[in-house]
Design a protein around this nucleic acid. Structure first.
Lengths: 151, 151
DNA sequence: TGACAATAGTCGTTGCAACGAGTATTGTTG
DNA sequence: CAACAATACTCGTTGCAACGACTATTGTCA
């Protein structure tokens, strides 16, 4: 056991304690997913983008990719650069509105995702499956509530 | 509203859905804290280290700092380098075991933390306070349970 | 005790993240 | 319709993160 990160100012900060639990848990669970993704040399962000693009085979504008991302990335351009260099996505300037650049997933990108699908699901089930459907739903509700007051 | 990141493979992955909620929530809540910390030019990691060292005025070995951190950092040396350069911590080689280097928080480091204490607490309360004590505790329990099966 | 392992930290390198400034295209309005 | 704003992206720069390889010190055991 490690962590505690308070001890001083034991002012009974239930909100901070919950926050720390949240960050810690996210970190611990992410680590396993990162291990899995590493077999394909993908970061979580890159994986996330590929999944977004798989869900939109007709392509998406960079801006739209950014909007749908889980963790906001202020520089999608270079993120897409790297994926394009590896042949996992393709880009093309739009004719109607020549400001926008459409990104599409390539067959190679789809193949990469497919190699990961089962392993990723297994990893998630392995980590969270023991909670059961009811508690997972409860957790989901609480997390959603956490984001309520974000201004 | 953004995010969804699935749509394909609607295989009803309750575990993955919970995972995404978790990461998303952690990201959203972190952002506010990062804003607050930015007023003192600190990253969450640096802030975390300072709080750890405040809790151990006699000093801690680098290794021990690493162990207590919320998010694991594989290169504590340079993290401490930067804090030392800014005068927020000090380091000194231990005499008993000359392999270890003790890190201590300096008065300047303490002052920095003190300037942040209230603002940080306010930020947490502002974001999570509306949940109430009961639901916060429930959330804490669920998050702890999430980390149970980590292998 | 002398060789080898274990521990503790440092440093080189690569690549990604964050921030801001810059460019190109389209929309708006006096 | 000309000027200005808004949009959509690109790029330069800085600094941090991740991964390994490396050095120094101590511990162990034949």
């Amino acid at each position: 056991m490690k962590r505690e990160a308070r001890k001083t100012r034991e002012k009974d900060n239930k909100e901070e304690a919950a926050f720390i639990e949240l960050i810690l848990t996210a970190d611990v669970l992410s680590r396993r997913l990162q291990q899995v993704l590493k077999t394909e040399e993908l970061s979580m962000t890159q994986y996330n983008v590929l999944r977004i693009l798989r869900g939109a085979p007709e392509g998406l504008a960079c801006r739209e990719v950014s909007n749908r991302m889980i963790t906001r990335d202020p520089d999608v351009t270079r993120l897409l650069d790297r994926l394009e260099n590896r042949g996992l996505i393709s880009r093309s300037r739009e004719e109607k509105d020549r400001r926008t650049v459409m990104a599409r997933i390539t067959p190679a990108g789809l193949a990469t995702l497919e190699r990961l699908d089962d392993v990723v699901q297994d990893a998630h089930r392995g980590q969270l499956g023991h909670l059961g459907e009811k508690r997972l739903k409860e957790l989901g509700n609480l997390l959603t509530a956490c984001r309520e007051k974000v201004g």
